[in-house]
Amino acid sequence: MIVFSGTDKKLGSFRLQDINFEIPEGYICGLVGRNGAGKTTLLHLLLGLFQPDAGEVQVDGYEYGSNEKEIRKLLGCVLVDELFDRGLSLADNAEYFGSYYEAYDAEIYHKHLEQFHLLPKRKFKELSKGEKLKCQFAFALAIRPKYLILDEPTANFDPEFRDAFWKILKDFIADGAHSVVLATHLTDDLDRMADRLLFLDKGKIQFDGDMEHFREKYRILSGETYLINLIGKERILGMEEGKYSTKALVKNNGSRPYPEGLAEAAPSIEEFMYLYSKGGGDKC
């Protein structure tokens, strides 16, 4: 299980504050938020690249201070940065960095390279952005990690590969012993595939829970503005007034029905983020 408890990190003027969440095994957890919300900082803390100013980061009960090596054996990652050596071939890169991992399996790596249509003898620098990420993804799988940490890889994948990518992730967590943490802006895929959601805004976690809870907790209401205002401002997280109709993101309270004449629907992650941003935040 991945556990953040009371974690703080200050980077210049940005501050990740009081981060508390748990990600158990068997989940695909989507990490979403606007640019600069703190997603990459959070992932860097999870990967031990940054050390927290306060609080703890634990992976399977291990902490970086005392069991860094054990944690790193459990984590495979794909980051936006180019992790491999540009001057080396894909095979040489994997051979070199794979030597640090006891569980590295060259066969898995080459199998995935073939599946992703990448030639092992090609130099890393010759690859396109998407291909570089595919290659790093193949390596992350080849070290046979317990947790996959992925920082916005999907934006650079072609639609055809994206399907294969999600299938691999589903297979990865299928045994219930592995998990994926995926930061992405492509929320449509998350709507379909994620089991859990972490929504970050201004360095704070605004939502942490499974997708069912997310769909249950919020509603998108559409209709006349005056009808929406009847709900009460404290429940409205964000609102957009249109020419003919107004849309609002509200906290769902199952016991109190909405005024008649309003259309009600569970929000998609994208709708949630969009309307949430209209409300200025801090009300989740």
Partner: peptide
């Protein structure tokens, strides 16, 4: 070291 080295299983001392 480059970034990948910091992600590999090594302690700070190593």
């Amino acid at each position: 070291l480059n970034k990948m080295h910091y992600l590999c299983p090594m302690t700070a001392e190593e």
